[in-house]
Design a protein around this nucleic acid. Structure first.
Lengths: 228, 228
DNA sequence: CTGAAAGCGCTTACAG
DNA sequence: CTGAAAGCGCTTACAG
């Protein structure tokens, strides 16, 4: 790969300093309109693209986020990553993707790699998070956001599904359709999200003046076949 | 995020120039053993991690590869990406993941983003590649590798599945198991990979002295239900 | 309006 | 063995 054209190159061509080129390219209103025009013109001709790595150094932000997953091939994770990438991109960020396969050693390497690359933040879209991340990343003071997980810490946030409200809405929907005997099928692992959904369901049932029937509540494998 | 500790910081602490620190950390044999020891010690205490962005600038390589997919949530793609990430990581590379959703405009943005970030190469793990990539990337002389796709070009390579050999081995396996009536179910889209697999199948059947029976060859939807 | 300077964090010849 | 210098590609006060 040949050396990409730099701000200096185009300054040389146009006959101005690289400072001026930089200003022009960043649309600084201070530079003379005609000069700016010439500069942009040449930049275009030369296929100039600012080096984010040069820029990152002075700006002290890399415009990247790191994303660690346990397994990329997991379709749920895939969906989340897809969303992350889309939004990141819309805001000028790129995303580093790494997978840990739940291996603590890998987790450590990933954190290290992200740190060395000076990511502006990391996102962990899996509910099972090694505490590794949290410890290491907060020591580095890198902002971190988790999915469906709450952990205290100055630099860590978590975005969660509102399972209670979801349980309510699902139930309301069915009642509005005219159904009167609505069953609840939940996960037998009995985690918090299940409890929340169930109480959403229950509260709507009761508010509607319907009997809460225990036999209509089943806990089973949290898989599609499990629902049968 | 507070400023990470730099080579200068630790130079200041140890009382040597940052050049010496750099040398010591890179295990240069030229620096005095004891000084080196002190430097590494302090670096460890301070949680020093070299900035790859600083290093990239001088080294002229970013130690990153870009990976563009059409859809991250696609499980096949997920598996490939997982492998890419693993190997990249083993070699000190990080991977930027972007998805184009087969939108030419997005494709262009992705190429631009990768270029600005000065990726050392890009990998496109999907057989359907917008020619966009190829054009743009080869103009930039960024090495690109495709999956199951062959396109000429100085900077582009493609890694392919050897479908013919795969068809042969599958068939040999079944014959070795003692089967004599082996059917072939292929894709009705009749692409190259199907043709290759089929001829692998056929050649083994014939080499075994078995009759090639046309009714044993079916072309259908290339999906699991399609196989029924 | 524009250039020279300094600096972001690193590496590496070049002189001591 | 070590430091000062130059330079990677950029940005942005500071003087003109």
């Amino acid at each position: 790969m040949k050396r990409p054209v730099s701000i200096k190159d185009i300054g040389r061509i146009v006959g101005v300093s690289h400072s001026t080129v930089s200003r022009a390219l960043r649309q600084s209103p201070v530079v003379n309109a005609q000069t700016a025009e010439r500069i942009c013109q040449v930049a275009r001709e030369q296929g100039y693209r600012a080096s984010l790595i040069g820029r990152s150094l002075v700006m002290r932000r890399s415009m990247t986020v790191g994303c660690v997953v346990t397994d990329i091939a997991d379709p749920f994770v895939g969906g989340v990553v897809d969303g992350i990438e889309k939004v990141a991109n819309q805001h000028g960020y790129a995303v580093f993707l790494a997978s840990s396969h739940a291996d603590p050693k890998r987790e450590l390497e990933v954190v290290r790699s992200f740190h060395e690359r000076r990511v502006d933040g990391v996102i962990v879209p899996s509910s099972r998070v090694g505490f590794q991340y949290l410890r290491h990343l907060s020591a580095l003071q890198i902002p971190i956001v988790l999915l469906n997980n709450q952990h205290p810490g100055a630099y860590t946030r978590s975005v969660n599904i509102d399972n209670l409200e979801a349980g309510r809405r699902l139930t309301v929907h069915l009642l509005e359709l005219g159904h009167r005997r609505v069953a609840y099928i939940g996960s037998r692992h009995g985690n918090q999200s299940d409890a929340d959904r169930l109480s959403g369901y229950r509260s709507v049932i009761e508010e509607a003046g319907l009997p809460f029937i225990n036999d209509l509540v089943v806990h089973t494998d949290p898989t599609p076949p499990g629902g049968h």
